[in-house]
């Protein structure tokens, strides 16, 4: 399977240039743009475990929501500084990932999948009953969020939210990119491809997988924190199983285990959803369904897989 090489290529600047272009070309789409960045970060965290680690999970929303609530509760109770909230969310979700991963990563395949589901359900149930902290089904509303770095207040037009999320995604992408290109990443991919051989050559498979899982959970928690901070709201839907499923769908749509699938998938999915929902608020789900069926049928490696096929064909024709 193809993965981004260690050296930066000029093409890799494209997502960031596009993000800047959107700011100038479509300033009224910034709130949607910020939401796309948040989902990119969440999908990126999924790609690390699902794509590179081969750990198929349906429970990643547990860490997303845990981060969202950590940032929310911290802001309501103590301090509304966004960077502090972001760091706290990353730490909390990462620790939760370490604790739960230590248990569930001892299992494989279907058992693992069921356990990830169980974790989401447990966290959701706790959040829904700890009403004193989380406000239960009503959610935490009007969460106070201070200006970023004490200077940039979150505004109605979404400019601050847009660049704040963009900066966080850029930082996290740099981290994930260097991770998957390091020996650590190679060991991770090795355990995905052939577990037994990795054990045979003496690689610490379990430890590597647990490390990757915890880092991924921390990233998901940061995505959750971003959602809380940009919407000033943390609710139970951040912990729902639907979000985990949606994340996986976006990842598959873009292309699994190739880093940039996590950029393409959420962008296409959310923009398509936004467009369809505006055309027919009642029946837009069908449009999304058709899109997904087409991708699964005709583009096995997601949208990026399709691009690969096309590029290869062009090259073959030329030579």
């Amino acid at each position: 399977m193809y993965s981004a090489p260690a050296r930066l290529r000029p093409l890799e600047a494209l997502p960031w240039l596009l993000a800047i272009a959107v700011y100038f070309a479509a300033p009224s789409y910034l709130p949607l743009g910020a939401y796309v960045f948040i989902m990119i970060l969440f999908t990126l965290s999924l790609d690390l475990v699902v794509g590179y680690g081969g750990i198929v999970t349906l429970g990643h929303s547990a860490y997303f929501g845990f981060g969202a609530y950590t940032a929310g509760i911290l802001a309501v109770r103590l301090n509304g500084d966004p960077l502090l909230g972001l760091a706290a969310a990353a730490l909390a979700a990462g620790l939760l990932g370490l604790a739960t991963g230590a248990v569930i990563l001892r299992t494989r395949a279907l058992t693992l999948l069921m356990l990830t589901l169980a974790i989401t359900s447990i966290v959701l149930e706790i959040a829904s009953s700890a009403t004193a902290l989380t406000n239960g089904s009503d959610g935490l509303h009007s969460v106070p969020v201070d200006p970023v770095l004490g200077r940039f207040a979150f505004d109605l037009f979404g400019t601050t939210a847009y660049f704040y999320c963009l900066a966080v995604v850029l930082a996290c992408w740099t981290l994930v990119r260097s991770l998957v290109n390091s020996p650590f990443g190679a060991a991770l991919v090795g355990s995905r491809e052939n577990d037994a051989r990795m054990h045979a050559i003496g690689a610490p498979v379990y430890a590597r997988r647990l490390q990757a899982y915890s880092i991924s959970c921390a990233l998901a928690g940061m995505a959750g924190a971003l959602l809380t901070q940009t919407t000033q709201f943390a609710g139970l839907s951040t912990l729902g199983f639907e979000l985990s499923g949606e994340g996986l769908v976006m990842l598959v749509l873009g292309g699994v285990g190739r880093l940039y699938g996590a950029f393409v998938g959420p962008t296409v999915y959310i923009v398509a959803r936004d467009y369809l929902a505006r055309q027919t608020p009642e029946y837009w789900y069908m449009g999304i369904g058709v899109l997904l069926v087409l991708i699964v049928l005709f583009a096995r490696g997601g949208i990026l897989g399709l691009v690969d096929v096309l590029v290869n064909r062009l090259r073959a024709k030329r030579s």
Binding site: S28, Y29, L30, P31, L32, Y35, S137, G139, H141, L156, F157, G158, L227, T231, Q232, F233, G235, S237, T238, A277, R278, P281, E282, W284
Partner: peptide, 23 residues
Amino acid sequence: IKRDDTGINPETAKRLAQELIVR
């Protein structure tokens, strides 16, 4: 101008309101 919040989804509702106002 109709917008779908899909149920109890405060984050979505907020973004839709923001878009209705700004866009």
